[in-house]
């Protein structure tokens, strides 16, 4: 058994790293966002930058758009992951085992891989439109619908699904395997149908893991820069791109404002995660955080 002192010592490298790079950065960002920026001789502390943020209609529109998009993408990945994980778990055959292994592949590949793959495949000059033109199914490249850099963010959505659905599958399969079929057997024996068993037994048992996967997916979607930068649409900009663009514009006087945006972005992400956890606790299965 580890003593408290030993535990603190063992964890100290992590805490040092955490305090040095994360907490200090947050504190510095917060101080700057309050208007304390000595490089520009700004030392007066106020909430003006935050007031500006909440009066900035463009920011609020982009923030809301990004949040809704991140939530919808994460929900879709979770729903799809749940269906596939449940299927893999029930079909315990070699074929489903092979597909389960294959489905893990995207977890290991970076987002940029699928971004580039989508650009190669689905842009209007990509492989699929070329193929369709050659097969005579469409007349010209411009007949192929705009999927990438479109206003509906389909390209970004597909990238998130590609990367995050397998993550949900891997997470849920582990929980489903831990649960096994014992509760399903009880439920069926007590007269429940397969659907009732899934809805009343399996789903609540995996619910905490599913919500955790949702939070991780949402947090990534909400803060991801490179995917919306490469596949997004300028008229329907997403928040990380908007904030980063402001930061790299080179206007040093905007730094405190950018910092306030950054902190609002982080706070929004944390609030959504907290709300998700609270909802999870109130839902069936939230009592003990799932299976013990």
């Amino acid at each position: 058994m580890l003593t408290k002192k030993k535990l603190v010592l063992l964890l100290s490298p992590f805490y040092l790293f955490f305090i040095l790079f994360f907490v200090s950065a947050i504190i510095r960002s917060f101080i700057t966002s309050l208007g304390y920026y000595p490089i520009l001789d700004q030392t007066k502390i106020s909430l003006n930058n935050y007031l500006d943020v909440f009066h900035d209609k463009m920011f609020l529109t982009i923030c809301l758009r990004t949040m809704v998009f991140a939530i919808i993408s994460a929900l879709f990945a979770c729903a799809l992951g749940l269906i596939i994980a449940n299927y893999f778990n029930q079909k315990n055959s070699r074929v489903s085992g092979f597909f389960y292994k294959v489905s893990q592949l995207p977890v290991m590949l970076p987002h940029i891989f699928i971004v580039l793959a989508l650009l190669q495949l689905l842009s209007q000059t990509g492989l699929i439109p070329s193929l369709l033109v050659h097969l005579g199914l469409i007349k010209s490249y411009s007949d192929f619908p705009l999927i990438l850099n479109d206003q509906k963010q389909i390209g970004i959505f597909l990238t998130y699904l590609w990367k995050e659905t397998p993550y949900v599958i891997v997470t849920l399969i582990l929980v489903l395997r831990q649960i096994g079929s014992k509760y399903q057997a009880v439920s069926l024996n007590l007269g429940a149908s397969k659907w009732q068993t899934f809805w009343h037994v399996t789903l609540p048992l995996v619910q905490p893991a599913l919500v955790n996967a949702f939070i991780i997916n949402f947090s990534f979607n909400f803060g991801s820069y490179e995917v919306p930068f490469l596949l997004g649409n300028q008229q329907k900009e997403l928040l990380p791109v908007y904030v980063y663009d402001l930061y790299v514009q080179g206007d040093i006087t905007q730094i405190p404002h950018v910092m306030s945006l950054n902190l609002v972005l982080s706070l929004a992400s944390i609030i959504i995660a907290a709300v998700a956890i609270l909802i999870s606790r109130k839902l069936p299965g939230g009592h003990n955080g799932g299976v013990r």
């Binding site: 439920s187 007590l190 037994v201 609540p204 048992l205 069936p284 299965g285 003990n288 299976v291």
Partner: peptide, 18 residues
Amino acid sequence: RLFPHMTVFQNVTFGLRM
């Protein structure tokens, strides 16, 4: 094999509810 996410009442009444 009591359902861990259900109270005793919910466990006992599971079959009737289904």
